[in-house]
C-alpha cells in the first residue's frame, strides 16, 4: 500500500517536475525579496538600540503599537482610510470595467489605439506632479478655479486648501482619474483574451450588445475582477501616501478629511525616526488586510471556487 502510494507520488513528481522547475527562479526571488525581510518584523516588538544590535535590543511587547491607538486621531485616520479605500474600490471597478468594455467595442482601430494610450497618461505622472497640477487649479492666488471659473458664475473665491468639506470629492476624483487607466488596461487585456467565437455565436442568436456584455464579457472577466478587488481589499488599510500627503499640500486645515494611517505615521515619526514604531504600523496594516482578504476569499470560494484566489 505504502509502496504503491510512493510509486504514484514518484510518477506524479516526474510528470510535474518540469513545471516545478519553472517555478524555482520566481519562488527563490520571493523568498529573498519578500520572505527573508519579514524576519525584520521582530523590530516592531523591540526598543531598537544599535549598540546592542537589532536582535539584542530589548523586547517591549506592544508598546510600539500604542501610538496608533492611544490618540484622539485614531478614529479619524481609521475612518478616512477605510472610507476612501472603499470608495476607490467601487469607483475604480465601475469606471475601469466600463471604459475597458467601451474600448473593446470601438471599431476604428486608430481611435481605439489613441484612447488606449491616452487613458494611461495619468498613471505615468508622479503624485508630486499631480499635486502641482492640482495646485494650478486650486491655489488661492493663482488657481484656475478662483481666477477664471468662479468669477464666471459670480462666486467668491474659495480657500480650497483650508476647506476640508471639498476634499473627499477632490481626492476621490484624482484617485480615479489617476488609477482607472491602469486597471482599465488590465481588464482590457482580459476582455481581448475572450474567445471571439462566443460573441459570434451570440450575435447569430440575436443577442443584443447589452446582453452579450452581461452574459459573456462580465462572467468571463469575473476572475480578474475578483482578483483585483481582493487585492484592493487586502490593501484597504494602506493608502496612497502621495495622494493624501502631496496633493492636499500637507495643509493642516484639511487633516480631518485627508489624514490617513500612512500620513499620520509619517508625520508622527518625522522627528522620532523610530523604526520600531514604523514597522509596527506596517504590521498592523498588513494584518488587518490579511484577515479581510482571508474572509473575502472565503466568501468568494463559497460562491465560485474557480474565482477564488487560493
Amino acid at each position: 500500500m505504502e509502496n504503491r502510494k510512493a510509486g504514484k507520488r514518484m510518477r506524479l513528481l516526474k510528470t510535474y517536475a518540469p513545471l516545478y522547475l519553472l517555478t524555482i527562479p520566481g519562488l527563490l526571488y520571493l523568498l529573498i525579496n519578500n520572505y527573508l525581510p519579514m524576519l525584520g518584523l521582530v523590530i516592531a516588538f523591540k526598543d531598537v538600540n544599535f549598540s546592542k544590535g537589532i536582535l539584542g535590543s530589548d523586547w517591549i511587547g506592544f508598546k510600539n503599537f500604542e501610538y496608533l491607538f492611544k490618540t484622539s486621531d485614531a478614529y479619524v485616520i481609521t475612518r478616512n482610510t477605510i472610507l476612501y479605500n472603499s470608495a476607490f474600490i467601487v469607483l475604480n471597478l465601475i469606471v475601469a470595467v466600463g471604459v475597458a468594455i467601451l474600448l473593446n467595442e470601438i471599431r476604428s482601430k486608430l481611435m481605439a489605439r489613441f484612447y488606449q494610450s491616452v487613458v494611461l497618461l495619468p498613471y505615468l505622472i508622479s503624485m508630486v506632479i499631480v499635486s502641482y497640477l492640482g495646485y494650478a487649479v486650486l491655489s488661492m492666488d493663482t488657481g484656475f478655479l478662483n481666477k477664471t471659473v468662479l468669477p464666471l458664475f459670480g462666486m467668491d473665491e474659495i480657500a480650497w486648501y483650508n476647506e476640508p468639506k471639498y476634499w473627499p470629492y477632490i481626492l476621490t476624483f484624482i484617485h480615479t482619474w489617476k488609477g482607472a487607466g491602469f486597471l482599465c488596461v488590465v481588464y482590457l487585456a482580459a476582455i481581448i483574451g475572450i474567445d471571439q467565437e462566443y460573441y459570434e455565436a451570440a450575435t447569430l442568436d440575436g443577442a443584443s450588445k447589452r446582453q452579450q456584455i452581461r452574459s459573456i464579457t462580465l462572467p468571463l472577466i469575473a476572475p480578474v475582477i475578483t482578483m483585483m478587488t481582493l487585492l484592493a481589499i487586502g490593501r484597504i488599510f494602506y493608502s496612497d501616501f502621495g495622494l493624501f500627503y502631496q496633493v492636499p499640500m500637507d495643509s493642516g486645515s484639511l487633516f480631518n478629511a485627508t489624514n490617513v494611517i500612512d500620513t499620520y505615521v509619517y508625520r508622527g515619526l518625522m522627528q522620532l525616526g523610530d523604526i520600531g514604531m514604523s514597522s509596527a504600523a506596517g504590521m498592523y496594516q498588513s494584518l488587518v488586510g490579511f484577515v479581510l482578504v482571508l474572509l473575502s476569499n472565503y466568501v468568494v470560494r463559497k460562491f465560485n471556487r474557480e474565482n477564488a484566489l487560493f
Binding site: 526598543d47 492611544k70 483650508n162 489624514n259 499620520y264 508622527g268 522620532l272
Partner: peptide
C-alpha cells in the same frame, strides 16, 4: 530625549502639524 514618551510624541507631532502652520 523623547523616547520615554514616544507614543504621546507621535500624537502631539501630528496635532502640531495639523494646526501650527495654518
Amino acid at each position: 530625549d523623547a523616547s520615554p514618551v514616544k507614543t504621546e510624541y507621535a500624537a502631539v507631532t501630528n496635532v502640531i502639524n495639523q494646526y501650527a502652520l495654518p
